[in-house]
């Protein structure tokens, strides 16, 4: 692989997204949402919440929005150029298909990470200036984990942009993926849990003992991994969620969860490269 080619392609993706104002729009949206939730969306009345509290409020919004952003950034990465016809000329240049996928992934990843960093970072600084207790490390962990969640969905989207040949079907695919991980899988897993665990013994507000397979299954859902990671690693989130119905098992660790997120990213990246390699343009 040749880095100059990869950089050229990555730069092109970044410039495209700056040109169509994606970056600016989404960063501003993140910042505004964070500020609004930190100030108004609090549990203990109005006023600035500290960063930890803000994270726990934001986590739900993030699991909802960041996958969408990852999917939207990536779902036309390859097929857009194939459909438009510019892939012919791009591929006729002295470069490999792997370099194209790597370049596009890195460029879009940079856009995604920059957006998350600027959006949450700016809001975080503003909040930090208004509250007394500030744990920048926790907030950085939150931003980092959020980036990884976004990258998983970006990788999926790029993979789907090598599978579908039409923009409209790819959009449909992206929406389906979002529903799958946001709603369908959690409901299915929960359904399976309810079907196997004796519900009558469950007292609301208390925790139940959950079989190991359930925690194995939820690792199939990057959104669950992200939530579990926040619960596990960040004090305030964990303390807020003690009333959670399903406790996390002992064997979950931040390292393991991050590792699995990385695997998710790699998996779809490799699938995308593999698909694109054998595609006829």
């Amino acid at each position: 692989m040749q880095s100059t080619v990869i950089v050229s392609i990555a730069k092109k993706e970044i410039m495209d997204n700056i040109r169509n104002k994606w970056i600016i729009l989404v960063s501003v949206m993140f910042a505004i949402l964070t500020l609004v939730f930190s100030y108004f969306g609090s549990f203990g009345g109005q006023g600035w919440q500290d960063l930890g509290m803000t994270i726990s409020i934001m986590a739900n919004i993030v699991t909802f929005l960041v996958p969408i952003i990852g999917l939207m950034l990536g779902y036309v990465a390859i097929l857009g150029e194939v459909e438009r016809g510019s892939m012919n000329s791009l591929l006729s240049l002295s470069m490999t298909r792997l370099e194209i996928v790597v370049g596009k992934f890195l460029g879009l990843a940079a856009v995604l990470c920059f957006t998350i960093l600027v959006g949450f970072g700016a809001a975080g600084l503003l909040i930090a200036a208004n509250v007394s207790s500030v744990d920048f490390l926790e907030y950085s962990l939150f931003i980092g984990a959020t980036m990884m969640l976004g990258l998983v969905f970006l990788g999926m989207a790029i993979f789907f942009s090598t599978v579908f040949s039409k923009r409209s079907t790819a959009l449909g695919g992206a929406i389906f993926i979002w529903f799958l991980f946001q709603m369908i899988l959690p409901i299915v897993f929960l359904g399976m849990l309810i079907a196997t665990v004796d519900i009558s013994s469950v007292v609301p507000g208390s925790s139940i003992s959950v079989p190991g397979w359930y925690h194995g299954l939820t690792l199939m859902n990057p959104i669950s991994i992200y939530s579990s990671f926040l619960t596990l690693s960040l004090g305030p989130v964990a303390s807020m969620e003690t009333s959670l119905l399903i406790p996390l098992p002992e064997w979950y660790s931040s390292g393991l969860l991050v590792g699995i997120l990385v695997l998710w990213i790699l998996l779809f990246f490799i699938l995308a490269a593999w698909r694109f390699q054998r595609q006829d343009i």
């Binding site: 510019s86 006729s92 470069m95």
Partner: peptide, 18 residues
């Protein structure tokens, strides 16, 4: 392919640009 394509300038049948 990468080495081979270094020698070539290509005009596709359906010319497309950004």
């Amino acid at each position: 392919g990468k080495e081979a394509k270094r020698f070539v300038g290509y005009l596709p049948e359906k010319v497309a640009f950004y």
